[in-house]
Design a protein around this nucleic acid. Structure first.
Lengths: 215, 215
DNA sequence: TGCGTTCCATATCGAGTGATAATAGTATGG
DNA sequence: CCATACTATTATCACTCGATATGGAACGCA
């Protein structure tokens, strides 16, 4: 098994606020789960990365699976924080586009969420059932009804709501999750300008009439 | 150890032609690697799935990593078999579209390849380096030059070659790899008609002027 | 200061990991 | 029909996995 980068080792005496340790563990878990999948991620490496000891994971969270769910839920909460404003007033093209930009901006800063979702998306599991029921289905419904409203008022490209959902999650967000591969294939510059350019690309597919020229 | 009786003890698995066992192992490895990732897949489960014993993996392939590479290479060969015809004479829209249909048809029948690629795409590793250098980069170049030729003759949507590449691999092929998740979100029918409908969706994005109306 | 709760640190468990050595068995060419 | 080359099977190695037990250290509160 190949481990890329060294991580801070567990310290000795000084004590942290427990919430701080829990957050550090969740941060570390997001990185490890996103890199190696649920089965491939190890609680010892997660603890090491957080500067803690492995049994502390079972103390603060009940088990590895509970840690995984807490990690996913926390990432979704962080995303919701970025989308809260004007996501439900999505009857106008401007509001919808703005929500998409926020979503893609979040995906570029926290690619771990889309990585984890995609790792689970490919094979049935109780984790996938939980993920869809708890987090993905509500989002999917919101996007669907917002797109239906836009289409009803004659806006937007000739795409179904499900096609839009897949464009957003696969073409849109995976661009950032797959950055390690894409940077080996393309001359991709990772950073804010490239992220906005990709958002432009997505919006051009959804609203071809409105958006300016290519690139 | 007691070995008293030369009981007929029928060998558990009647002997196969070695190439057959190797192929069975590669089939099983594709499924396991695609489901659980490299770290999460176990050589014992792969062997079990192939009706073999775990040490036979190290006998026929040198190691788990060699097995992984052989698995990936075999899937790419199977894909090349489907694309061989007229993939290089891609100067016409018809040939290009036909190649895309073949690619997506293969992806729907063998989603394991795109699953494995996507598992590796998200974090740097020696496997990702090998995967890009050996298999992905040549394909990426072919698609890039074919699209450039089409665009030079005024065909195709206003997309860069890299955007087309991501549309094909992310939006196009991942539709089938992520079937377990999408079937929980959408009312998706998995089958040949649905696969062709998705191919239509991709081609409509690439050639909006040519393709017929939406759904 | 002293007590009680909360949290950390160490040791360890049984199960599972990939890999190898050694043996047992089968198929094939001379 | 046997000698030889292959392949299958068993046993086992050192290691890592997630989880738990236990004792002690650090804290809040009196």
């Amino acid at each position: 098994m190949e481990r890329s980068n060294a991580v801070p080792t567990a310290r000795r005496h000084p004590r942290r606020r427990p919430e701080h340790l829990a957050e550090d563990l969740l941060d570390a878990a997001a990185i490890e789960f996103a890199s190696h999948g649920y089965d491939g991620a190890s609680t010892r490496r997660i603890a090491d990365r957080a500067g803690a000891h492995q049994p502390q994971i079972n103390y603060h969270f009940r088990s590895k699976e509970h840690l995984w769910r807490a990690t996913v839920s926390r990432l979704f909460e962080m995303m919701a924080l970025q989308l809260r404003r004007q996501v439900d007033e999505g009857s106008s093209v401007g509001a919808f586009s703005d929500a998409i930009r926020r979503f893609l901006r979040f995906s570029s800063v926290h690619p771990e969420l889309n990585r984890i979702i995609n790792l689970e998306a490919t094979s049935p599991s109780s984790r996938l059932d939980w993920l869809v029921a708890t987090h993905l289905d509500p989002l999917h419904r919101m996007v669907g009804s917002a797109w239906a409203a836009l289409r009803a008022s004659g806006e937007g490209a000739d795409l179904t709501a499900d096609e839009v959902w897949e464009l957003l999650t696969s073409y849109g967000a995976l661009h950032f999750a797959n950055a390690p591969m894409l940077s080996r294939l393309q001359t991709s510059a990772d950073g804010d300008p490239a992220a906005e350019a990709h958002a432009d690309s997505v919006l051009r597919l959804l609203f071809p009439a409105r958006m300016p020229g290519p690139r």
